[in-house]
Design a binder for these strands. Sequence first.
DNA 1: CACTTGACCTGTCCGC
DNA 2: TGCGGACAGGTCAAGT
Length: 292
Amino acid sequence: MPELPEVETVRLGLQRLLPGRVVASVDVPGTAKSFPNAPEDVRQFLLGAQVAGVRRRAKVLLIDLSTQYTLVTHLKMTGQLVFRSDRERFGAGHPSESLVGELPDRSTRVVLAFQDGSHLYFNDQRRFGWMRLMPTSEVPNIDFMRKVGPEPLEADFTWQVLRDQLKRRANTSIKAAILDQTVVAGVGNIYADESLWGAKIHPKTLVKRLTDANIKRLHTALVDVLTLSIAKGGSTDHTYVDAEGRKGSYLAFAKVFRREGQPCPRHPDTLIEKIRVAGRGTHICPKCQRPK
DNA sequence: CACTTGACCTGTCCGC
DNA sequence: TGCGGACAGGTCAAGT
């Protein structure tokens, strides 16, 4: 599921591929739920617009256009943004690293065609994701943007910032707290489990029971795990691919996520367990992550 | 206000 | 082989 590293990987690809291209047409197969804008707005602010750049905030992708409008996209669980040049029918790279065949397919929600014959496909098997067009100046005012917490890979995200952000969630579990996008931006289930293992903290630990030393370790682990995952192109379990349809390889480096029954890298005699925390499947080493 | 749970979806896997 | 049900998880609305 696209979390910060996956969305950032898509952004890096799109930032390389899209700027300068001019939108020629938009097709929304099926229902308009995935792309709810009125046709007249699409005509006025999207058709003929040139892509200026691609940004990311938390798990949200922002494709800025020359019309001072922005295509805002949330991939949620199974969303993909896949670019194809006019020559490619099956995508770049070796077929074995692509999860995506000929496009559009039945998961395709929105197709953007550019004047040079290339296309951007927004696919979303489970239809939780969305894409919408809005004035660039309005983006910071949408509810999510107003409430979302600090970017964990920005230089000003210190352990003290994390500590202060956590104060509001003193009586909840640390896992629920770091999944809360208003506490810290971009962390989802994979990197919550990975960073809590890295920090040797049990995910059910109440935030108010954490020491400064715990929070420092969690801060370091979060930054390290997110940075490593971006370097590996993110995590692919089922559907995630980058802007060119390629899988990410982070899960080959994961310590606990989806590794129940396998030995803990720190304690080969102890097997990783899967439990339920904050309503989510949660992976821990029972030896290095003791309940507090 | 803090916190938890259910809804939104569809594909996959498991047990019968 | 078919089928019901559990499960996957990002976010928001509704509930306690």
